[in-house]
Design a protein around this nucleic acid. Structure first.
Length: 152
DNA sequence: GCCAACGTTGGC
DNA sequence: GCCAACGTTGGC
């Protein structure tokens, strides 16, 4: 079992959007970064727990919890010229980009703000607060996960 | 909107 | 393979 943090811009897709899907399952498409892709392809497994994180918004932080219900498979939006995630260099023989499906578990009563997370000495080494943490999919270790969940 | 910190691209 | 230019991310 592994733990992750998936970033999303709530203006585009928020925790509420995820919660409002009837079966609560959504494919996490549009990841166009090789390191994040490698995680999705090789490391993210069924049952892994995922913090949902809102970025580029008023209340930046962790907003809820989801679970991986389908492991890495081909992200179809890379072949769709109409999609903003279209990648003309990708072919169906050799798809470049992957995605996983996640299932909504719960939304936290209160957003665990980045500002607050930065003040927690217990998890000062978390990837999220390190310099240059631009990955949209970040691994979270078990201690960090348990600690943060305990704050929600 | 600004800007730091990356990641990607492409000419050589 | 190097590296400058460019594009993107994301907090503020």
């Amino acid at each position: 079992m592994q733990y992750w943090l998936f970033k999303t811009e709530p203006d585009a897709f928020s925790i509420d959007d995820l919660a409002n899907i009837p079966d609560g399952i959504e494919h996490w498409d549009g990841i166009r970064n090789y390191q994040a892709r490698n995680y999705l392809r090789d490391v993210v497994k069924l049952g892994d727990q995922v913090f949902i994180y809102h970025s580029s918004c008023k209340y930046v932080g962790i907003v809820g919890l989801a679970e991986v219900v389908k492991e890495g498979y081909v992200d179809h939006t890379q072949f769709d010229p109409e999609s903003k995630y279209y990648d003309p260099k990708s072919t169906k023989d050799k798809p470049k980009w992957m995605m996983v499906d996640i299932h909504f578990k719960r939304k936290f009563v209160k957003t665990l703000l980045l500002k607050e997370i930065k003040t927690m000495p217990e998890i000062s080494e978390i990837g999220l607060v390190k310099k240059g943490h631009r990955l949209t999919i970040l691994p979270v270790n078990q201690n960090e996960f348990a600690w943060l969940l305990g704050k929600c």
